[in-house]
Amino acid sequence: MARRSGRSAWIAAPFRALLQRFAFLLLLATAIGLVLVSRIDRPLVERARALVADIVEPVLSTVAQPVAAVNAAVGWVDDILFVHEENFRLRTENARLLQWQEVARRLEQDNAALRRLLAAGPDLSQTYVTGRVIADGGGSFVRTALLNVGAKDGIRKGQAVIGEGGYVGRVAEVGQRAARILLLTDLNSRLPVMLQDGGHRAVLAGDNSPFPRLEYLSGAAKPAIGMQVVTSGDGGQFPANIPVGEIVEIEGGVRVRPLVDLGRLGFLRVMQFDETRIDAEDPAAQVLPLAPPPKGQ
């Protein structure tokens, strides 16, 4: 930078300070304006995000790989620390699941027999596209994840995303090579669900806490701790009976713990579901659930 003469610096200094102050206020106003615009014009924001995600996807994918290795190492240490607890839990679960295996086999035979009687077509099986989580929201105000699959892999907006054990979220934005998942714990997530026992409909509303709230549950329903919650399929974006979580709190609002550990997402499957293929009201076309039973049985 060239040195200024004493006089011009004397004039420039207050002017610069003023400019600085003006720039600060201008940028603050711009930022607040952007926050408001992003609440109003969602399509514009989604396009901008998808574009940036597409550009940065290779970098994030590269960064995500060593991170996955570190995560695996941390998980390994964690597994060792809790091996006794885990072993005990798995033993009891195994005993219970063996009973359920029997039940499932019997139901499968029953189901096949009944289908033959009804002359119903075979189950329309879903196809999946699997992607790796390359970024998460990271902040305390969003619960999202970025997957390294996008429109070129057949991902569409609104598709259900499944992790190990159940529902994780839905596709909120799609770029060519990356897609953003809105997790079911996010503030903006509203998921049509039902109680597995009784089929009472409700909406699972995220609030950024680890346990989303169950809202609009009909008065006739009697929620109890340990009850399973599954998707209801209302809205037609994805099928019914995807396991979502179990009720962990009923006093002061019903809260649900997701079945999938959302803090440790690795590979996720995006369900390729075409609502025109099946009629949600047709019971023969519904997928048979095989969710674990409520606790205490």
Partner: peptide, 11 residues
Amino acid sequence: LLSGGPIGLNA
């Protein structure tokens, strides 16, 4: 843009 939150907040 990358984290999925409202745009402008981190700015």
